[in-house]
């Protein structure tokens, strides 16, 4: 597969993938390395990293093990990233495909709804949804998905509009295929590459959105998320800065990894770019 090969020839894309795999490994090994509940009291609060061999990343201001929270937090970040992104991309593709394929009034209606979502700043809409529906982690994930679908919808729509009158689609239509099969079987596979690439952007922003919520103490306090830890460290930021800095660094690396993978996919799926 040439796209596969092209991806692995790109060193920053490979680095992104390595980082992403590392985050996945963190998430998978959490139970094994830290069998105790990461949110339970573990020792004296605010111990510096390396000061106590039991807590090699130190403890936060509530006496919880930071390392354990980082490992379990990887699960939450990945969960948010994957679920919210799948939701946003699925809704986006559906809306974009239908609008782009049928055009006319259908397109008009769907696109005005999309506009309505896009005119409100993402984060504001997210705050609104959390305020109304509460801040359980499931709700947070769904809310992030709901505020993120308009951009993929527009992207899919644009792809569909250029593809729907291609000769191969006309030929398939003359073969007697139904609209559903034309949309999902003929056009969508050809429209997918840019949408897949954009999914990485959605994933990175989803992780950031959750962290921002947590920083404002608006995310689910009962899960060990990186954002919660950053928010918790805020009160001791000047003396024990590591409480915020360590999870902040984890967020930075994860978002960087996802972005690099996305960039790599973009270059691999658009072979014209590597002709130079």
């Amino acid at each position: 597969m040439p796209a596969f090969k092209r991806y692995f020839r790109n060193s920053s894309a490979v680095m992104g993938l390595v980082l992403l795999v590392a985050v996945v490994l963190l998430a998978l090994s959490a139970d094994f390395l830290f069998p105790r509940n990461p949110l339970s009291l573990a020792g004296r609060p605010l111990q510096w990293p390396m000061a106590n061999p039991r807590f090699w990343l130190g403890t936060d201001n509530m006496g919880r093990d930071i390392a354990a929270q980082i490992f379990y937090g990887a699960r939450i970040s990945l969960l948010i990233g994957v679920v919210a992104t799948s939701l946003a991309i699925a809704v986006g593709i559906l809306v974009g495909a239908v609008a782009g394929y049928y055009g006319g009034l259908v397109d008009e209606v769907l696109m005005r709804i999309t506009d309505a979502f896009q005119t409100l700043p993402n984060f504001l809409l997210l705050l609104l949804l959390i305020a109304v529906f509460g801040s359980r982690i499931e709700m947070v994930v769904i809310a992030i998905g709901v505020v993120s679908w308009p951009a993929p919808a527009r992207l899919t729509r644009a792809e569909f509009m250029t593809l729907r009158n291609r000769e191969f689609v006309e030929a398939a239509r003359l073969s007697g295929l139904s609209d559903t099969r034309l949309i999902f079987g003929e056009i969508l596979p050809n429209a997918l590459p840019p949408v897949i690439v954009y999914a990485s952007v959605v994933m990175a922003t989803s992780i950031l959105l959750e962290s921002s919520l947590a920083f404002l103490n608006l995310s689910d306090p009962n899960v060990p998320s990186w954002g919660n830890l950053v928010g918790l460290g805020r009160s001791v930021l000047r003396s024990e800065w590591y409480v915020s800095a360590i999870p902040g660094f984890a967020i930075l690396l994860t978002v960087l990894a996802v972005s690099l993978v996305g960039q790599g996919l973009n270059d691999a799926l658009n072979p014209r770019l590597d002709e130079q």
Binding site: F168, A171, A172, S175, L177, N190
Partner: peptide, 25 residues
């Protein structure tokens, strides 16, 4: 159709392209 490149879906096997109309019917 005119364009020998644009008129065949690049992601399908050519046999599939010819047969799918029959299968759909």
């Amino acid at each position: 159709f005119q364009d020998p490149f644009a008129s065949l879906n690049p992601r399908r096997r050519v046999g599939e392209l010819v047969a799918q109309g029959l299968v759909a019917r």
